[in-house]
Computed example of a mutant assay.
Amino acid sequence: MKDSHVADDVTRAAVELFATQGYANTSVQQIVEAAGVTKGAMYHYFESKDDLLFGIYEKLLSLQKSRLDQIIARGGAVDDVLRAVCVDVIETSIDHMPEGTVFFRSMHMLSAPRQQEVTRRRREYHDEFVQLIERGQAEGVYRTDIPVAVLVAHFFSDLHYLSHWYSPEGPEDKTLVAEQLTDLFLTSIRRPDAAA
Rank of each mutant, 00 (worst) to 15 (best):
I189V: 15
P192N: 15
E99F: 00
I71Y: 08
D3H: 12
Y125K: 03
Q21R: 15
H108Q: 10
I146H: 04
T119H: 12
D8K: 11
C86Q: 01
Y23I: 00
L184M: 14
D158M: 14
G136E: 02
P192H: 15
K65W: 12
I189F: 07
K49Y: 10
L132P: 00
A149C: 05
H164M: 13
I94F: 02
R114F: 04
Q137F: 04
E16R: 11
S27V: 10
S157Y: 07
D193P: 05
E134P: 00
S4K: 12
F104V: 11
P168L: 08
L60M: 12
S111Q: 14
L17V: 07
E128S: 14
F129A: 03
K59H: 09
H96A: 11
V130E: 10
T101W: 08
Q29S: 14
T119N: 12
Q21V: 13
Y57L: 12
R191M: 11
I71T: 09
L52M: 05
S167V: 03
I90S: 01
Q131Y: 02
L162A: 07
D3W: 03
R12S: 10
Y142T: 05
G22C: 05
V6I: 15
A41Q: 15
V118F: 06
F103N: 05
M107R: 09
A19I: 04
R114A: 11
S27Y: 08
H5M: 11
V148C: 10
F104R: 08
S4W: 06
M42V: 05
P192E: 15
A153T: 13
S66A: 15
P192F: 14
D80A: 15
R121A: 06
G55D: 09
A196D: 15
A138T: 12
T182N: 05
E172A: 06
Q180Y: 09
N25L: 06
A153H: 13
G100W: 06
M109V: 01
I71E: 06
F103M: 10
T175Q: 14
G140Y: 09
A35C: 10
E99C: 08
S106F: 04
H154L: 12
D3G: 04
S188I: 01
E117P: 00
K2A: 14
S62A: 15
M1R: 08
K174L: 05
I71D: 04
E117I: 02
R67N: 13
R83G: 07
E47C: 04
K59P: 00
A195C: 08
R105N: 10
Q30L: 12
A138W: 03
D127F: 03
M1T: 10
E47F: 08
Y161K: 08
V85Q: 01
I90C: 07
L68C: 03
V148M: 07
E169W: 02
W165C: 03
D3Y: 06
L110T: 06
E16L: 08
D79T: 13
R123E: 10
R12P: 00
T101M: 10
A149P: 00
V102S: 05
L162K: 07
A194W: 11
F156V: 09
A178F: 06
S106T: 12
L110N: 05
P192K: 15
R114T: 04
G55E: 09
Y161V: 05
D88T: 12
S167T: 11
A153P: 02
K49H: 11
